[in-house]
Nucleic acid binder design. Structure first.
Length: 275
DNA sequence: ATGCCCGCTTACAGCGGA
């Protein structure tokens, strides 16, 4: 039959060898403590983009050379001892924002954003907010209001955007092994959930929820009380997709086995693939 | 009811995490 010659799928792929783009989020809970696990995960699961949270070190100390040897470019927004986010990518990334707008006095490193292969990607480490009520919970809700305002601006651009990170919000009762056990926690207060829902109502798609609508999918297991062995987890790491990104959604999941390794983070990586 | 466990800090005890 006449017409355009068939080419293998990969020829049209943005990464040459892969028609799909895998974007992951992983709260590593300390770069120095987790670097071997991080490298193992990158090698085994090969995300095209990896948004990291809780790198817990200053920007200049991040092991960019080691990660370059592993095949990744790094953008880093660090902080000594606490917090800190990064974006690793196979393709070079162009930074578009460092820090969440809306409060010039906020010195915590919890937001980093970049363009990678035509997709706007953010690495988010939303405040925990415990104990509640109190100033930390107030900071969490104020941070979520700022995120809501910025997310609205991102949507207005109309492009493919992925807001990936540790949101420290358990959106629904079926996102936690036993809701009663967490009832007084900042992660599932009505105000926290309402702020998360307000984001979704803007037009974002919770990718993991869309692929696993029945819930019971965990991304975090506490180090304490044998939570991993008992599978007492909850879902707080989320990938929110703009409509243009959601149109390209192929799959989403959790690299659960990563949580079972020696010296593991208390979070497992979560990911989406976009066509 | 609290702590369990973990990572971090000009550390060796206390804080933050979730």
């Amino acid at each position: 039959m006449a017409g355009r010659p068939r080419r293998p799928l990969s020829a049209g792929g943005i990464f040459g060898h892969n028609a799909f783009m895998k974007i992951a989020s992983f709260n590593i809970n300390g770069t120095n403590a987790r670097l071997p696990r991080l490298l193992e995960w990158l090698d085994a699961y090969k995300p095209d983009v990896a948004c990291l949270q809780e790198i817990k070190m200053q920007t200049e100390n991040f092991p960019v050379e080691t990660l370059k040897d592993a095949g990744y470019h790094c953008l880093v927004h660090g902080q000594k001892g606490f917090n800190g986010v990064a974006i690793l990518s196979r393709e070079p990334a162009v930074e578009t924002r460092r820090g969440l707008p809306g409060d010039e006095t906020d010195e915590q490193s919890r937001y980093l954003e970049a363009d990678v292969a035509g997709v706007r990607v953010a690495s988010i480490y939303l405040p925990n907010g415990n104990p509640q009520p109190g100033p930390k919970f107030d900071y969490k809700l104020a941070w979520m209001a700022r995120l809501q305002a910025h997310a609205q601006n991102l949507l207005a651009g109309g492009g493919a955007v992925v807001l990936a990170g540790d949101y420290n919000v358990i959106p629904n009762d079926d996102d936690v092994w036993r809701p009663e056990a967490m009832a007084n926690d900042a992660l599932m207060q009505p105000e926290s959930r309402a702020a998360y829902r307000a984001l979704l109502w803007q037009g974002w798609t919770d990718a993991l929820r869309a692929v696993h609508p029945g819930g019971q999918v965990w991304t975090y297991w506490d180090y304490q009380a044998g939570a991993w062995a008992r599978n007492h987890g909850f879902r707080i790491d989320h990938l929110l997709l703009s409509p243009a990104a959601a149109d390209r959604l192929v799959d989403a999941g959790v690299d659960t086995a990563v949580r079972g390794a020696e010296k593991a983070s208390d979070h497992a990586p979560v990911w989406v693939t976009l066509r």
